[in-house]
Design a protein around this nucleic acid. Structure first.
Lengths: 239, 239
DNA sequence: GATGGGCACTCGTCAGACAAGCGTCAATAC
DNA sequence: GTATTGACGCTTGTCTGACGAGTGCCCATC
């Protein structure tokens, strides 16, 4: 990761703060480049590069010869595009769920698992099955898979009730992004039994492969969120 | 919208093409700024601004004094973050569904609808209810609301089976983005009856408010996607 | 009153200069 | 012979000056 942020990135963030301080709204005009040069006491290049970043983010729009204007910009707290682990997400929503470890095993991966996690021959996979409950109601059922080698400790010496992201990070593996699939499902017979929940409800299933910043797959997870308790938000844009 | 793209944006896109042509992979080094200046025959400013945009997108990473390197960058075709109308989405998935208009009415909006669509007093709202089927199976049930004034024609003279986005655009209203909520639901009794579908399946519900680029709300929609037929993909990033 | 031209201002692009940082190679010291 | 340090070449980061392209406003002319 970058040692420290460049001036352009810093100026971009200072521009954001300026927009907020001045209470600028969609359609309002930003100070000109020369005004910003004087205000921020940096060179024009740094100003321009910062402004270009804001423009790419859709925050502002430049009109050649005229100036730069605020666009309308929806903002969401914790959108679905922001990756957070299940533990983190539940905490942010004030869900006081207790986390039960249903199963934790290391085994030889099947071919699908080996491909998913890009495992070398001979490498075992850990399967972690957990259930979050609130007052006897199942809220969230999770099945996680990750390479055995990532956690260099005996499985029975690890506390599996906390955040997997944090656990991986403690062992030097930082999750950077996930490729996610979103589906609506009902539980199959086995799952309904594990979860002790009726089969007729809808669950929002997030199937994700989590990677570090170099693209290495660290974790595969299937998270079943009970439909009556969970929804997610995001902004979608036309191209 | 901008009259024509700036050089920086064009160079950014040419850099993308260059990366693809050369088959550059994560960890590979990009040509230096001076090499790119000669290659693209533009000034250093345009190169730098373009590179900064790619860096913000997470495509590359700059190391001061060393060079710029490709990062790992998952790519998805048509991610959920890309907004497309239901008609468009179905077509892209090769769903040959016939579209039935169950209901089309203009009425006085309730308070919720008025707030959602920021309607002035006296402005009516149009409610459009449609069902997409494939061989008698309901695939997608939609309810759309939009200000009556957006379509300056009698309702019975409009073909409601096609794309709403296209229809709005034909009347000068371009959808730019939507704020979306994703949920897993089962159909209620009324809906199951409308849809002629059993009540026990799971449906992926997308509730969206669509806006033009100035932030004006154009359309509110509830789209129920049958769980066994639809899933969506997206990339999620840690902050 | 309407239209056209000029001017001031703004963003877009190029070029030159210097600072900050990185990696490699050669020289020196142990 | 090996390890450390310094110099050099190269790269990115930042500043500055200059000119081109475009916009909007004001004034003059018809």
């Amino acid at each position: 990761m970058r040692r420290h942020p460049t001036l352009a990135v810093q100026v971009r963030d200072r521009l954001r703060a300026l927009i907020a301080e001045r209470g600028l709204r969609p359609g309002d005009r930003l100070p000109s480049e020369n005004e910003l040069i004087a205000l921020f006491e940096v060179g024009r290049t740094s100003i321009r590069e910062a402004l270009k970043l804001l423009e790419q983010e859709g925050v502002i729009q430049a009109r050649h010869g005229d100036g730069r204007y605020l666009t309308s910009q929806p903002s969401l707290d914790r959108p679905l595009t922001r990756l957070e682990g299940v533990t983190e997400m539940l905490a942010s929503r004030g869900h006081t769920a207790d986390n039960t470890v249903l199963d934790i095993t290391a085994a030889e991966p099947d071919r699908h698992q080996r491909e998913l996690l890009q495992l070398p021959p001979g490498e075992a996979v850990v399967r972690l099955e957990r259930l979050r409950r609130h007052e006897d109601d199942a809220l969230l059922y999770s099945v996680d898979l990750f390479p055995r080698s990532l956690i260099a400790r005996p499985l029975d010496e690890v506390d599996w009730t906390g955040s997997l992201f944090r656990l991986l990070a403690e062992h030097g593996h930082n999750v950077a992004y996930a490729v996610a699939q979103v589906r609506a499902v009902t539980l199959d017979e086995t799952q309904a039994e594990r979860v002790a929940s009726p089969r007729d409800g809808a669950w929002l299933l997030l199937v994700q492969t989590h990677h570090d910043s170099a693209g290495r797959p660290l974790l595969y997870s299937e998270d079943y969120h009970r439909g009556t308790d969970f929804s997610f938000h995001l902004v979608r844009r036309r191209d």
